[in-house]
Simulated scan of single mutants.
Amino acid sequence: MRIFITGGAGFVGSNLAVNLKAKYPNYHIIAFDNLRRRGSELNVKNLRELGIEFVHGDVRNSEDFESLEFDVLIEASAEPSVMAGMNGGRKYLIDTNLNGLVNSLEAALKQRAKVIFLSTSRVYPMEVINSLNYEESQTRYSLHVNNIAGVSERGFSEKLSLDGYRTLYGATKLSSEYIIDEYVHMFGLKAIINRSGVIAGAGQFGKVDQGFLTLWAANYYFNKPLSIFGSGKQVRDILNVNDLFDLIDLQIHAFDKFEKERFNIGGGLDSSVSLLELDTMCKTLLGDKKVAFQELRGLDLKYYVSDNTKINSLGWQPKRNVTNTLKEILFWIEKNEKELEWIFAS
């Protein structure tokens, strides 16, 4: 089997490539990336050493796909920042997340390949989520009983309303989903859409606006300043990248069972954490550190936890919790301290 991964040198794409090659050494895995994100170039050597083909290309350029052959496309390329477009960079965001998707789909049609698209929980509108009733404890927000479709004590399901504003990033991903729908209907494309929350694990180069679990661990480790925006009681569920691989592996090899569907995928309530709770975990593992508080940012959510009920019914559920994931990240940082210091400590 030939599996083509866009964004293949990024955190998610490279982890999927490495895990696929380890489990299926006879598969031809192609990692495709423009290496724009800082740190992604560090993954290229490892990919090649493992027998994974690396192609330096850009999803925005349709000609970069012309010589490639594959049976499955995992579309993991994106400008992934929720803050993208706020202070410029809107053209790159839209070119990558929309035009890049179209180029990827056209290549998949040409190859008659199946498509697994990594979307985001940010397709759900901020005002819908932030306007719900929450209970407030000393360390976190919790969902209050809300008589609203798609909302339960388990979190948010695929039935949550899509009416409202969601950030430019979320809009590009939701638009991508609609484009995929049209390709499925008009051209017979075979596709699966996964809406993930926060994905984390070893190998992630976290930033303030994307990859906060790694950012927190790294800034504690390298003794860099940290700020909490708002109360720190905001909650996210954490999906370990290896649990994501387990799902993608299942979908590749039982594609028909998942085809033409959308799935919310995440760590779920049992693998959720607030910023205050994460900070306490880091203090326990790495020692005390003073953290500043700043005003809440306009694009922040009070709460997001994935209701995995739909995907659970088809045989997948996450196995790793927040503590497991945080310890994996810290082990990776310690093991690669010299190589990572210029990224995290600069």
Rank of each mutant, 00 (worst) to 15 (best):
V235Y: 00
S196Q: 11
W216M: 15
G230L: 07
A218P: 07
N240T: 06
I192E: 07
E261M: 09
L250S: 13
I199C: 06
A217Q: 08
A202Y: 07
F222M: 03
Y220V: 01
I238R: 01
K190Q: 14
V235H: 06
A217K: 02
V241G: 07
I193N: 04
R195H: 06
A217G: 04
I228T: 15
G188V: 08
F229C: 11
F258N: 00
P225S: 06
K257D: 13
H253R: 02
G232R: 06
D237A: 00
N194E: 10
V208A: 13
A191I: 09
Q234N: 12
L215T: 09
W216L: 13
A191W: 07
I199T: 09
D237H: 03
F245G: 13
I228R: 05
Q251K: 05
S231R: 05
F245R: 13
A218K: 04
F222H: 04
I192S: 07
I192G: 06
I265W: 02
N219F: 08
L250C: 00
L189P: 11
F255W: 04
D243Y: 13
A218S: 09
A202D: 06
H253P: 03
I192W: 04
A191P: 11
D243R: 11
E261W: 00
L239T: 03
K207M: 12
I265Y: 02
F245L: 15
F263M: 01
G201P: 07
G203K: 01
R195W: 09
I248V: 14
Y221G: 10
L215Q: 09
K260V: 05
V198S: 14
D249A: 06
E259M: 09
G201V: 07
W216G: 13
F258P: 04
G201C: 03
W216F: 14
D256T: 11
D249E: 14
V198W: 10
H253N: 15
L189E: 05
Q251C: 05
K257R: 15
Q251L: 07
G206D: 02
R236T: 04
Y220N: 05
G197Q: 01
I238E: 02
L247T: 11
G206N: 01
I238T: 00
L247D: 14
S231I: 06
G201E: 11
N219W: 07
I193C: 00
V198H: 13
I265Q: 04
I248D: 11
F212M: 11
Y221Q: 01
L250K: 15
V241W: 10
F245H: 12
N194W: 11
